[in-house]
Design a protein around this nucleic acid. Structure first.
Lengths: 223, 223
DNA sequence: CCAAAAGTGTTATATATACACCCATGA
DNA sequence: TCATGGGTGTATATATAACACTTTTGG
């Protein structure tokens, strides 16, 4: 998945789908994937599939979602699938093969098998983690303006996030690093935006849940 | 897993382990489980395994955790395992077979394969969900006092939770139902404790994360 | 100098923790 | 009536949402 910034249309969260050429559900859109080899684990496998089949190598985050194992989830012999969430930053727009395309997650075409529910589950997981982890780093270029970050947060969450509060919350949590540089202002003027980057590119829980914390810690984080 | 209330020892979170009789890692403690049949999904399978092998049928919650698929995680041919978290309420103490026993999660014996990390991962998941969902219902009898609830929350989280605040937080979230009945006071007197039950026995997210909520909703929940 | 975009100051509100105090029971 | 455990009232801390206001640029 990745947040789109295609000019014109309102930005949205997109998923890369592959049009099936084989018979069960031929012609329908499906998630990229394939069989697990005996000498690889599932994470290695999904990275290999994406690289080989759709030339997708620039994943900023890969995370296991769930196992789908209903004996009737696909016609014929039962197939056990492990679903993954893989993120690609918005500035990466790789050449995708002819038979694949990015689709808005909130307006999916008819998909094969149970892939629609897998995609929606992945979206929900991503939305949740955007609130309590630093996973935003996986959606944007290394250096970015708060405006861009806001656009992609909004696209992913499905509603308009305030740039002011986004900046504040992420700063308070210590996720943002001021690079010292600025982006040039547009042709219509305006103050040049500071370029920020994320302090860490590993997923970390940055907003530990509030309730039932060990006594004495309150909700403080540092100092 | 279940929270223990064994008199004497400090209460703790326990996990049911089975002593291996077969050769790889013979004699070590391992998680109950077994092979997936062609006509069942993984959730059905784990319930069947628990019922057949350790006579454990009174699970109040079963939840998928993760797939473990490292080709070298067990000796010999690769085995892909789907780990589950299964909860048993504290008042259920089924007859477990000779070769199984409950062990404190924070003081595990030597385990087989990668089972220690699976157990610790399950514990962490349960601890997190205790904060932001109503999963506590799965740990206690249908009707319970706040004191009992506090004991099991404390055992599970690993630190002493305040009964006062536990009551308040869960009430505010609308999770607790006053049954109208009370538990008799102990031999040393004391005010009889109100018996509560959980409003729902399905896992629900009761504390949606704070940051980046749709505009206009603030953090309010009702009214 | 004006429009536009970025960023800061300030206030209101929600939720949780801490702790003092009151309540109901057995002996 | 006293010890014991159960339960409520109230103060405080902290985080976020909302919005007014200031800053910095292009034309």
């Amino acid at each position: 998945m990745r947040p789109s910034s295609d000019s014109g249309a309102p930005p949205s969260l997109q998923v890369l789908l592959w049009r099936r050429a084989l018979d069960p559900h031929i012609g329908r859109w499906s998630l990229p994937g394939g069989r697990l080899r005996a000498d690889e684990d599932v994470a290695t496998s999904i990275r290999r599939q994406l690289a080989e089949k759709v030339d997708m190598r620039q994943l900023t985050h890969v995370e296991q979602l769930a196992v789908f194992s209903d004996p009737r989830r696909v016609p014929g012999p039962r197939v056990v699938a492990t679903a993954f969430l893989g993120l690609v930053p918005s500035d990466v727009d790789p050449e995708v093969p002819e038979d694949t395309a990015w689709h808005p997650v909130d307006d999916l075409p008819r998909t094969a098998f149970d892939h629609e529910s897998i995609v929606l589950g992945a979206r929900d997981r991503l939305r949740a983690k955007l609130s309590y982890t630093n996973i935003g780093f996986a959606l944007v270029p290394r250096d970015f303006t708060i405006s861009l970050l806001r656009e992609h947060y909004s696209a992913t969450l499905g509603y308009r996030v305030s740039a002011t509060n986004l900046q504040r919350v992420l700063s308070r949590r210590g996720l943002l690093v001021d690079t010292g540089r600025t982006a040039p202002s547009g042709r219509s003027g305006g103050r040049p935006a500071t370029l920020y980057s994320f302090a860490s590119h590993d997923v970390q829980i940055t907003d530990p849940f509030a309730a039932f914390k060990p006594p004495g810690t309150g909700r403080e984080r540092s100092s």
